[in-house]
Protein backbone atom coordinates (compact mmCIF):
# COMPACT_ATOMS: atom_id res chain seq x y z
CA UNK A 1 0.00 0.00 0.00
CA UNK A 2 2.80 2.43 -0.88
CA UNK A 3 2.08 5.91 -2.19
CA UNK A 4 4.60 5.10 -4.92
CA UNK A 5 1.94 2.82 -6.47
CA UNK A 6 -0.18 5.85 -7.34
CA UNK A 7 0.75 8.72 -9.61
CA UNK A 8 0.73 12.23 -8.12
CA UNK A 9 -2.42 12.95 -10.15
CA UNK A 10 -4.18 9.93 -8.63
CA UNK A 11 -3.19 11.00 -5.13
CA UNK A 12 -4.38 14.56 -5.82
CA UNK A 13 -7.81 13.41 -7.03
CA UNK A 14 -8.11 10.79 -4.28
CA UNK A 15 -7.41 13.29 -1.54
CA UNK A 16 -9.43 16.12 -3.13
CA UNK A 17 -12.06 14.52 -5.36
CA UNK A 18 -13.96 17.00 -7.49
CA UNK A 19 -17.72 17.27 -8.00
CA UNK A 20 -18.76 14.63 -5.47
CA UNK A 21 -22.40 14.09 -4.69
CA UNK A 22 -25.59 13.49 -6.65
CA UNK A 23 -28.18 15.76 -8.25
CA UNK A 24 -31.68 15.18 -6.98
CA UNK A 25 -33.97 13.74 -9.67
CA UNK A 26 -35.42 16.51 -11.79
CA UNK A 27 -36.54 17.16 -15.31
CA UNK A 28 -33.10 18.29 -16.40
CA UNK A 29 -31.13 15.62 -14.50
CA UNK A 30 -29.87 12.36 -15.97
CA UNK A 31 -28.09 9.48 -14.20
CA UNK A 32 -25.80 6.68 -15.14
CA UNK A 33 -24.40 3.94 -12.94
CA UNK A 34 -22.38 0.77 -13.25
CA UNK A 35 -20.65 -1.77 -11.05
CA UNK A 36 -21.40 -3.17 -7.61
CA UNK A 37 -19.37 -3.12 -4.40
CA UNK A 38 -19.02 -6.90 -4.70
CA UNK A 39 -17.15 -6.29 -7.97
CA UNK A 40 -14.79 -3.91 -6.20
CA UNK A 41 -16.23 -0.68 -7.60
CA UNK A 42 -19.46 1.18 -8.20
CA UNK A 43 -19.83 4.46 -10.09
CA UNK A 44 -22.78 6.82 -10.05
CA UNK A 45 -22.73 9.80 -12.40
CA UNK A 46 -25.49 12.41 -12.46
CA UNK A 47 -25.61 15.46 -14.68
CA UNK A 48 -27.70 18.56 -15.41
CA UNK A 49 -28.53 18.74 -19.06
CA UNK A 50 -28.68 22.02 -20.97
CA UNK A 51 -29.89 22.63 -24.49
CA UNK A 52 -27.22 20.53 -26.18
CA UNK A 53 -24.53 19.97 -23.58
CA UNK A 54 -24.02 18.82 -20.04
CA UNK A 55 -24.01 21.78 -17.69
CA UNK A 56 -22.73 20.17 -14.48
CA UNK A 57 -21.72 16.72 -13.29
CA UNK A 58 -21.63 15.00 -9.93
CA UNK A 59 -19.99 11.68 -9.07
CA UNK A 60 -20.13 9.19 -6.24
CA UNK A 61 -17.68 6.31 -6.18
CA UNK A 62 -17.13 3.17 -4.15
CA UNK A 63 -13.74 1.82 -5.14
CA UNK A 64 -9.99 1.91 -4.93
CA UNK A 65 -7.95 5.12 -5.20
CA UNK A 66 -7.68 4.70 -8.99
CA UNK A 67 -11.47 4.47 -9.25
CA UNK A 68 -12.05 7.56 -7.13
CA UNK A 69 -9.37 9.47 -9.00
CA UNK A 70 -10.69 8.42 -12.42
CA UNK A 71 -14.25 9.47 -11.62
CA UNK A 72 -13.07 12.78 -10.18
CA UNK A 73 -10.78 13.44 -13.17
CA UNK A 74 -13.61 12.55 -15.56
CA UNK A 75 -16.11 14.81 -13.79
CA UNK A 76 -14.00 17.84 -14.75
CA UNK A 77 -14.15 16.85 -18.43
CA UNK A 78 -17.77 15.83 -18.93
CA UNK A 79 -19.31 19.28 -18.41
CA UNK A 80 -19.71 20.89 -21.81
CA UNK A 81 -19.86 17.63 -23.77
CA UNK A 82 -22.63 16.97 -26.23
CA UNK A 83 -24.46 13.69 -26.62
CA UNK A 84 -22.19 12.28 -29.29
CA UNK A 85 -18.95 13.05 -27.46
CA UNK A 86 -20.37 11.66 -24.25
CA UNK A 87 -21.38 8.39 -25.94
CA UNK A 88 -17.92 8.11 -27.48
CA UNK A 89 -15.93 8.62 -24.27
CA UNK A 90 -13.33 5.89 -23.83
CA UNK A 91 -11.91 4.40 -20.65
CA UNK A 92 -8.44 4.69 -22.21
CA UNK A 93 -8.40 8.45 -21.68
CA UNK A 94 -8.64 8.02 -17.91
CA UNK A 95 -6.32 5.01 -17.84
CA UNK A 96 -3.56 6.88 -19.69
CA UNK A 97 -3.95 10.17 -17.86
CA UNK A 98 -3.84 8.47 -14.47
CA UNK A 99 -1.32 5.74 -15.31
CA UNK A 100 -3.77 3.07 -14.21
CA UNK A 101 -2.04 -0.33 -13.91
CA UNK A 102 -3.12 -3.12 -16.22
CA UNK A 103 -4.81 -5.09 -13.44
CA UNK A 104 -7.11 -2.15 -12.68
CA UNK A 105 -8.24 -1.52 -16.27
CA UNK A 106 -11.35 -3.62 -15.79
CA UNK A 107 -12.55 -0.98 -13.33
CA UNK A 108 -12.02 1.74 -15.94
CA UNK A 109 -14.27 -0.28 -18.26
CA UNK A 110 -16.93 -0.19 -15.54
CA UNK A 111 -16.52 3.60 -15.37
CA UNK A 112 -17.01 3.68 -19.15
CA UNK A 113 -20.20 1.63 -18.67
CA UNK A 114 -21.49 4.26 -16.25
CA UNK A 115 -20.79 6.98 -18.86
CA UNK A 116 -22.52 4.92 -21.58
CA UNK A 117 -25.50 4.53 -19.27
CA UNK A 118 -25.55 8.29 -18.75
CA UNK A 119 -25.41 8.85 -22.52
CA UNK A 120 -28.27 6.42 -23.05
CA UNK A 121 -30.34 8.18 -20.39
CA UNK A 122 -29.77 11.45 -22.25
CA UNK A 123 -30.68 9.89 -25.59
CA UNK A 124 -33.91 8.43 -24.17
CA UNK A 125 -34.81 11.73 -22.58
CA UNK A 126 -34.61 13.42 -25.97
Amino acid sequence: MAGADYSPLVIEHFERPRNTGRFEPAADVIEGRAGRPEQGCEFHVSARVGHDALIAVRISVYGCPHCIAAASWLSERLAGLGQQDLAAWSWREAAEALDVPAEKRGRMLILEDAVRHLAEAWRQRA
Binding site: M1, P65, C67
Partner: peptide, 9 residues
Protein backbone atom coordinates in the same frame (compact mmCIF):
# COMPACT_ATOMS: atom_id res chain seq x y z
CA UNK B 1 -19.16 1.46 2.88
CA UNK B 2 -15.46 1.94 2.15
CA UNK B 3 -13.44 -0.11 -0.30
CA UNK B 4 -10.44 -1.78 1.31
CA UNK B 5 -7.59 -0.35 -0.75
CA UNK B 6 -8.95 3.18 -0.40
CA UNK B 7 -9.34 2.64 3.33
CA UNK B 8 -5.74 1.54 3.71
CA UNK B 9 -4.35 4.34 1.56
Amino acid sequence: GIEGESLQF
